[in-house]
Amino acid sequence: MDKKVEFEFLELDNKNEVVEFINSLPTKDKAKLLQVISKIETLGLTTAKKMQWIKKLDSEIYEVRSKVGSNIQRCLYFQKVGNQYIITHGFTKKEQKTPRKEIQHAKNLKDKYMRGVNHD
């Protein structure tokens, strides 16, 4: 069994894009997304990969995948340390590929977070 995964939602400048995104979703979509995040935390990354709940987008950014009917939700995240991960933001997916701007946004938030952590 995998080590337990811990997710935290990134908060920068008193703004939490993940919570804002989740709260903007229809009830079923919100419940499914939170359920997927919870299952990943409980069952670990190996199971999550097999179940296609997560996907590596590039060397530093990953996505949590959730779908209700034709509504596809994604939350991007990065590894903080060990089995701790930080979800930067979420979006509703409209096309096959994850938009580059969303990946870039996650990287920008990660960089901002890393600078803040190292210089406090």
Rank of each mutant, 00 (worst) to 15 (best):
G44D: 11
E8C: 14
A31F: 02
N16T: 07
W53P: 02
A31T: 04
L12N: 12
V64R: 01
I37S: 06
A48C: 10
L45G: 10
K50Y: 09
K3S: 15
F78A: 07
E17Y: 09
R74M: 04
S70L: 06
Q84V: 05
I37V: 14
R74V: 03
I61G: 04
F7T: 12
Q79C: 05
N23Q: 15
F91A: 08
K112M: 13
G44R: 05
D2R: 02
Q84G: 00
Q73L: 01
E11K: 15
N16P: 02
G69V: 02
K107H: 15
K30Y: 09
V5W: 00
K112H: 11
V81E: 11
K97E: 13
K101D: 13
A48W: 01
E41I: 07
F7N: 11
T88P: 00
Y113T: 06
K49D: 10
K110F: 04
N23T: 09
Q79M: 05
N23V: 07
G44A: 10
K55W: 01
I37T: 08
N23R: 13
Q35P: 01
L25E: 12
K30Q: 15
G44F: 04
K3A: 14
L57M: 04
T88R: 01
D120E: 13
T98D: 11
Q35M: 08
R100F: 11
Y113K: 02
V68K: 01
F7D: 11
G90K: 03
V5M: 10
V117M: 14
I61C: 06
K97W: 03
S59L: 06
V64M: 03
I87K: 05
P99R: 02
I37E: 12
V36E: 13
K93S: 09
N71A: 06
L76M: 06
S38P: 00
D2V: 08
A48D: 10
R115E: 14
I86H: 03
I103V: 15
Y85C: 04
F21Y: 15
D29R: 00
I72Q: 03
F91Q: 07
D2F: 08
A106M: 09
L25T: 06
K112Y: 04
R65H: 00
F9H: 14
K3W: 10
K94D: 08
F9K: 14
Q79D: 00
D2Y: 02
G69N: 11
L25D: 13
I86E: 06
D120P: 11
K67H: 00
G44Y: 08
D29S: 15
M1F: 05
V5R: 00
V5D: 11
V117I: 15
F21I: 03
V64E: 05
T27C: 05
N108M: 13
G69D: 10
L10V: 10
T98M: 10
K107D: 08
K107P: 06
I40T: 12
S66G: 09
I22K: 00
K15M: 13
G90M: 07
S70F: 06
M114K: 03
I61H: 01
K3H: 14
V81F: 06
V36N: 03
Y85M: 04
E17N: 12
I87P: 06
D58Y: 02
D29K: 01
K39L: 14
V36Y: 03
M1C: 12
Y113A: 11
I54Y: 00
D29I: 02
K112W: 06
E17G: 03
D13L: 13
I86T: 14
D111M: 11
E6L: 14
